[in-house]
Design a protein around this nucleic acid. Structure first.
Lengths: 190, 190
DNA sequence: TTTAGTCGTTAAACTGGTTTAATAAAAATG
DNA sequence: CATTTTTATTAAACCAGTTTAACGACTAAA
């Protein structure tokens, strides 16, 4: 759990006792390619840290897959809406390759954050970080062409295209597989 | 500052002493229609609470306005990227009508959150809330038509259309004034 | 009260996507 | 390893938006 520890400490100093305290609640989960952490209807009372692998956060709508996000190494994730609201999940969290995550139950998150002011601060700062990232994504969705968004994805998340099938990338970018194929064709020509 | 107090308490209990402590740092700011809180290049070291009025969060690109968000009554806001990174602003925060906000300096936010575990928790939970809202917006941007997005805006933020010129609404939705006009025409026909 | 500027609508031509369907290529499975 | 299934490409027809430009209504300023 060295990666997770460093991740936490990247946000704010936390003393060893508090780290140890919260670590007692984490359990390690192995997922084989295609296995799901969460599916619609599930209770969502775990918060996850992705150690190795890749998880696809998506929903099904009119029989179509709509990719919301790909979580890869060294990020926190869950179906946050359902987690916060105690609502049944409407999305899937599914490994796109063999994956290892660490999981902590919501009640133990709150317990740890309640016990330690530093851990609470880590929680705030990591949430702030997630918010800033998400907001800059909104900016792109509204103001960039699909081509710009595809090129940016290639640039900002190198390797993702090799790890994940292209039709999922297309969905993540908000277009169809056919549309992405055309954009790729256009790009090699120039 | 009763509204602000209730807003904080809506996230988590905070004792009166801690509320009073952070309140000493807030100052009230009146903005006339068109006045700017932030413009590109500015240092952003205040966090704001919108009490009454409306603030347009936007950027200029190739001479075009790109609206990112409209902040209205009872929300927290700032140019968060610049605030967090201590980077010069790249966006504007401009009142679209006469507006009253409360402002607190970043250093005093950190001081208050450092002093009070409950205030820190409020910070975490409000950030979580902001994150969840933003994430659900991403979902819409990727998976809904412009028409659906316009109808949803009418529904979820009634009154906004009357407060804000239509070309800004168009920009917020990611389309041109002409495009929005066509959608509106289509809608009255049906 | 005229004048200048802003805002929303409309029309026409255009464009970058979608949809549907066929086909090829690659991967999974018995 | 032969078969089935999944994934990516291509083509053709289509469509929901854009761009440009003109016009009328409203607003602000002199």
């Amino acid at each position: 759990m060295e990666n997770l520890k460093n991740k936490i400490l990247s946000y704010t100093p936390v003393n060893v006792a508090d780290i140890d305290y919260i670590f007692q609640f984490y359990s390690k989960i192995h997922l084989r390619k295609g296995e799901k952490l969460i599916k619609p209807g599930d209770k969502v009372d775990y918060f996850y840290y992705l150690d190795v692998g890749c998880v696809n956060y998506y929903k099904m709508e009119k029989g179509e897959i709509k990719v919301l996000e790909f979580y890869t190494e060294d990020v926190f994730f869950t179906d946050l809406y359902a987690y916060v609201q105690n609502a049944p999940a409407t999305c899937f969290l599914e490994a796109t390759e063999d994956t290892t995550v660490y999981a902590i139950e919501k009640i133990n998150v709150e317990k740890s954050f309640g016990k330690s002011h530093s851990l609470e601060r880590f929680g705030r700062l990591s949430m702030q970080d997630a918010f800033v990232r998400t907001f800059t994504r909104i900016e792109r969705l509204n103001n960039r062409t699909y081509e710009e968004r595809y090129l940016r994805l290639l640039n900002k998340r190198p390797g993702l295209i090799q790890r994940v099938p292209q039709y999922l990338i297309a969905s993540y970018l908000g277009l169809t597989p056919v549309g992405l194929s055309k954009i790729r064709k256009r790009l090699v020509k120039n």
